[in-house]
Write a protein that binds this DNA or RNA. Structure first.
Lengths: 228, 228
DNA sequence: TTACCCCTTTAACTTTCTTTAACAAGGGAA
DNA sequence: TTCCCTTGTTAAAGAAAGTTAAAGGGGTAA
């Protein structure tokens, strides 16, 4: 079994040690750094395969650290740890290309699950990046202009419709996890936002039904898959 | 990278010491200067990364100080401290390129939050600086003269129209947050000013409709995006 | 001073977007 | 099967934004 090298940046040493020990038991070779500066210094000296970064850290915060790490390795998976209240951070995190984030407090199992999911994704193919234009069957979709076209007939999408469709596109032909989508777009993954997302899925399906080869499939209990 | 070096110019030594101590605890290396003259003398001798300037100071006020600092370092983030009543100051502050301002009295947490927000912004992709002339599709826009031209046909814009269009230009193809725009131009981000801004968006859209590739897109609940 | 003009704000009404609610349908486990 | 939880769908409520017109206010010229 291959051991994965993990960089863990967490300034709360209680939590940090706890996580490190837990991950080590689970066969992740974890290096704990207690602030962003140290993490940045250590990063080039190891062959890390995954980063887990607390956002709130002294000297160099997790977001800045992530940007620096991305300059060195643009494709390494990054998971952020943040307080639920720091909504701004979460949004900003996704903009810097976070692969996932977990809001404190969280369970160890939760973290482990996310780690496995991300490693599986990035092992197969590269992490889906943002594109400026997507082709969905016979449709074309411009996420910046928020326009979906079929047969040169453009339809203006609302902000939320566009955001959700873009996420589906970035994960085309693989599962877009409900929680991931909710946290990316709605920030809070509570019951009501989940129902709101269901409504938007219905709408997107309506927009996309002109091409029978395009389907948004539900994966019970997990999320949706855009087939095209 | 290291601890952020902060210049704090505040003539009230009670408040000054309090802020300095608080920021130092929060890992900002803070230098307190008790008047604008001293601050200006010290500025070139340090590698400051952020300035917090009280506006009301003897000898050299914060606004003048900011202008001088900008001559030396045009991109350093500046936060002004001012009394809520001094709206003129705030306006003038934003004109000299303030990144934010805080009205007294304020909480330490509030200040800290703003510092973090600004450093985050200027660390990543800095907010595009002012330019003397913008190209918007087939239009050209001179913010100083407040003139928008299409096909060599100039249209004179009002002050508010011009200010709003300039902000949109500086954030072209990304979201200009409502609150940011309101605070920059209208100072107060209350309901009525927000409605006033809506009216100006309508006007700008009218001016810009000669070029179909130029669009001011609304991002529901967040702000506007100028596409061009 | 008064009258006028221009800019900005306020107001009223309309439209669009998002969320909430209610009920129907489907899937998985015991 | 039955029960429970998830998802599908539609409608309506609620909130934000679009639009137009008119009121307010400050400055300037007669």
């Amino acid at each position: 079994m291959k051991i994965t090298k993990v960089l863990l940046a967490e300034d709360d040493s209680n939590l940090g040690m706890l996580l490190k020990d837990y991950l080590s038991v689970k066969n992740y070779d974890t290096t704990l750094l207690v602030n962003g500066l140290q993490a940045l210094e250590e990063f080039p000296r190891h062959q890390f395969e995954l980063c887990i970064l607390d956002i709130m850290m002294p000297e160099i915060d997790g977001l800045t650290l992530a940007r620096e790490i991305r300059k060195i390795n643009p494709s390494i998976p990054i998971i952020f740890l943040t307080a639920k209240s720091q909504k701004e951070d979460i949004l900003e995190g996704f903009r810097t290309g976070a692969d996932d984030y977990i809001t404190k407090p969280f369970s160890m199992e939760e973290l482990l699950y996310r780690i496995q999911a991300i490693l599986k994704r990035s092992a197969g193919s590269a992490v889906p990046r943002k594109e400026s234009m997507y082709t969905i069957g016979n449709y074309t979709f411009d996420p910046l202009k928020q326009v979906l076209s079929f047969d040169n007939q453009p339809v203006k999408l609302t902000t939320k419709e566009s955001e959700l469709l873009e996420l589906l596109c970035r994960h085309r032909n693989e599962i877009l996890e409900r929680n991931f989508a909710l946290k990316s777009i709605w920030i809070d993954d509570n019951y009501f936002n989940a129902r709101s997302m269901d409504v938007y899925i219905t709408r997107l399906r309506k927009y996309l039904k002109k091409d029978a080869s395009v389907k948004i499939l539900n994966v019970h209990g997990r999320g949706y898959k855009l087939l095209c």
